[in-house]
C-alpha cells in the first residue's frame, strides 16, 4: 500500500491518490488535495458537497451518484460541475477522503 505525505501527515493512499483509511482524513488534508486538483480554496459550497459525500458514504457504504447528490443532498448538478470543474465526483470524493467512484452514472 503506497503512502503519501499530505499536509505534513503520512497517509495511506491508492496509486491514484485516494485515501484508504478514512480515519486519517483531516480538513488540512482535504485542502491540500483540493490544491492538487486545481482548486484554490474550499468555499462553504465545496464543504457542503464534501460533507454530504462523507455523511452519505457513512450511512450507505457507497458514494452517492451525481443524481443523488442533487436529489438528496440538494446540490444542483450545474453547481457541482462548477464547484469541481473537470470531473466533479472523482475530485470531490478524493478531497473528501473517500474511494474513487465505481458507478457509471
Amino acid at each position: 500500500m503506497p503512502t503519501k505525505t499530505i499536509a505534513g501527515v503520512t497517509v495511506d493512499v491508492t496509486e491514484e491518490g485516494y485515501l484508504t483509511n478514512r480515519a486519517q482524513w483531516t480538513k488540512d488534508i482535504a485542502l491540500e488535495i483540493a490544491h492538487e486538483e486545481g482548486l484554490n480554496e474550499l468555499s462553504p459550497d465545496h464543504w457542503k458537497v464534501i460533507e454530504f459525500l462523507q455523511k452519505d458514504y457513512a450511512e450507505r457504504g457507497a458514494l452517492p451518484s451525481i443524481r443523488r447528490i442533487n436529489a438528496v443532498g440538494g446540490i444542483p448538478t450545474k453547481d457541482l460541475y462548477s464547484l469541481f470543474p473537470g470531473g466533479p465526483l472523482k475530485k470531490a470524493a478524493r478531497i473528501a477522503g473517500l474511494p474513487k467512484p465505481t458507478s457509471c452514472v
Binding site: R67, T77, K78, Y81, V105
Partner: peptide, 18 residues
C-alpha cells in the same frame, strides 16, 4: 435502482453537466 434517470431527466442532467 442503480440511479440511471429516465430519459428526460438524464438529458437535463447532461445539459447541466455542460
Amino acid at each position: 435502482k442503480i440511479d440511471i434517470p429516465p430519459i428526460p431527466e438524464m438529458l437535463a442532467m447532461i445539459d447541466d453537466a455542460g
